[in-house]
C-alpha cells in the first residue's frame, strides 16, 4: 500500500514539475508551483517525513508562489503607467 501511494505521489510530482517548466507565463507558473509544493508535501508524508512535509507546504505552496505573484505585479506595473489599472 505504501509503495502505491509513494509511486502515485512521485508521478504527480514529476508531472507538476514538468508542467511548471513548460508554462511560460509566470502567473500560471506560480500556480503550478503551488500545486507542485502540495504534491511534494504528500510525497514527504508518505515517506514518513511529516516535518519536511510541513515545511514544504508552508514554503513551497504558500510563500514562494506569493513572492512570485508580488514580483510579477511589480514588474507588470512598470514605471508609473501601471498606477491607473489597479
Amino acid at each position: 500500500m505504501d509503495e502505491v501511494l509513494i509511486a502515485i505521489a512521485v508521478v504527480l510530482v514529476a508531472a507538476a514539475a514538468t508542467a511548471a517548466v513548460f508554462h511560460r507565463d509566470p502567473l500560471r507558473q506560480s500556480m503550478v508551483l503551488s500545486l507542485l509544493g502540495l504534491f511534494l508535501a504528500l510525497l514527504y508524508t508518505f515517506v514518513q517525513a511529516p516535518d519536511v512535509a510541513l515545511s514544504q507546504l508552508a514554503v513551497g505552496s504558500a510563500v514562494t508562489p506569493l513572492m512570485i505573484l508580488l514580483t510579477v505585479r511589480k514588474v507588470k506595473r512598470g514605471p508609473r503607467s501601471g498606477s491607473e489599472d489597479r
Binding site: 510563500v63 508580488l70 506595473r77 498606477s83
Partner: peptide, 14 residues
C-alpha cells in the same frame, strides 16, 4: 514579504 509587498504596492519609479 513586507519588502515584496512594499515594492509591489507602494514604491514606484518616477
Amino acid at each position: 514579504l513586507a519588502r515584496f509587498l512594499d515594492q509591489a504596492v507602494e514604491i514606484e519609479e518616477t
